[in-house]
Simulated assay, not measured.
Amino acid sequence: MKFVGGVCLALLLWFGNLVSPAAAQDPYRITPRQKEIIQTIMNAQGGYIDAALYEEFWSAIPLTGAEKAWLVEQMQAFMVNGQVFTRESWASAEIALRTGSYTETDDYKRAKQKNFDALHAMGPGASTADFERSVANAERIIRGAANREPVDFGGGRIAYITEDLVATVLAGIDGSLDRVNLLLMPEWQPTEMEIALPEPGVKLLLPWHLARQNSVKELEQGVQLPTTFYSGALDETTFVDIGYVGFAGLKLASREVMFSAVRGAFKNAGIAFTGEPVLEPWRGHDSVTAWGTGSADGTPIAGYIRVFIPGARQGLSMVLLLRQGSMTELVGVVDGFEHKLSLVE
């Protein structure tokens, strides 16, 4: 997520120098592998966490009792609070965009103060440069939204603050926050929440939010189809893509377009059919399903897709699951996943 980065990377660098007051004679430094785990967890696009990552991260930390509690408190203060501040910056920008007026919400002000207090607690030697830079970036985003002006995000990235960009960034931050909070639990006990995906018209149970991407698919003769996809890793080997493609105003046969979408999705994913796509009823709707296999960097991949037209909408929704490994393993994943998915009529 290009627009989410700064605060998170700064926090990661800070965490690399973390020292417990009680362990000053034998200071703890985060290992390169632990940095990789944090980056995996915080990755807005394909981040994940599971029991294995959780155990690997904490088993490498030689702290117990009060020292470990202190470490968790510091991680909470900087990793979580920093992301919350970034999130509230974009939530304020969303209101500024709607009202045309520079707006700092109460949640934004509280998050800003919380980060300032945490920095102040580090003592007089603590650098305020990253914090001041984050505040300046937040104010620039909110101001750009209010004035409908392009915002320079650095690195040659310039963009207008739009409703779609706000929704995409917030989804990425929410997923990252969900996973960081799972890492900071005293024990590995993930809980699932109901997450609504309005464009595809589904709700599902997951322990973290999926990343969101909106685009326009260009067809022949100037035809444009708006698309919205929610995607992310479910674990180290399983990836999900849930999307909606609108075709309002086009005269398309629903069954024909579903078969076409299945073929196109598998082609884009590099998946070859292991059997013909099948038309079947699913929760009161026609749907088309297919299974297939492929490979990525020499690793076998199994794929599954279901395409359906949600309610009376002029468009179609799809669920694509890809998993490293055998088709047998994917079958079990699909069965469990679809039991956690509900349609919104």
Results as ranks from 00 to 15, higher is better:
V7L: 07
C8D: 07
A10G: 11
A10C: 08
W14D: 07
P21D: 04
A24L: 14
T31W: 07
R33Y: 09
M42D: 03
Q45P: 01
E55F: 08
A60K: 10
L63T: 02
V72N: 04
S89H: 06
A91Q: 14
I95V: 14
Y102G: 00
D106Q: 13
N115L: 11
F116I: 13
M122E: 10
G125K: 13
S134C: 07
V135N: 03
A136W: 08
I142N: 03
A146T: 01
R148K: 15
E149I: 05
F153L: 09
G154D: 00
G156Y: 13
G156N: 06
I158R: 03
A159F: 05
A159E: 15
I161F: 02
I161V: 15
A167N: 04
V169N: 02
L184F: 12
P186Y: 12
E187P: 01
Q189S: 05
P190V: 00
M193I: 10
E194W: 09
V202N: 01
L204A: 00
L206D: 03
W208Q: 05
A211K: 11
R212F: 11
Q213D: 12
V216W: 02
E220Y: 10
V223I: 15
P226G: 03
V245K: 12
F247V: 03
L250M: 14
L250V: 04
R255T: 13
A261S: 10
A265I: 14
I271E: 06
I271C: 05
A272M: 08
F273P: 00
V278E: 15
W282A: 03
R283M: 10
D286T: 02
S287A: 10
G292N: 07
G294D: 06
G303M: 09
Y304H: 11
R306V: 00
G311T: 07
R313I: 03
Q314L: 04
V319Y: 01
L320R: 06
M327T: 09
V331M: 12
V334R: 13
K340R: 15
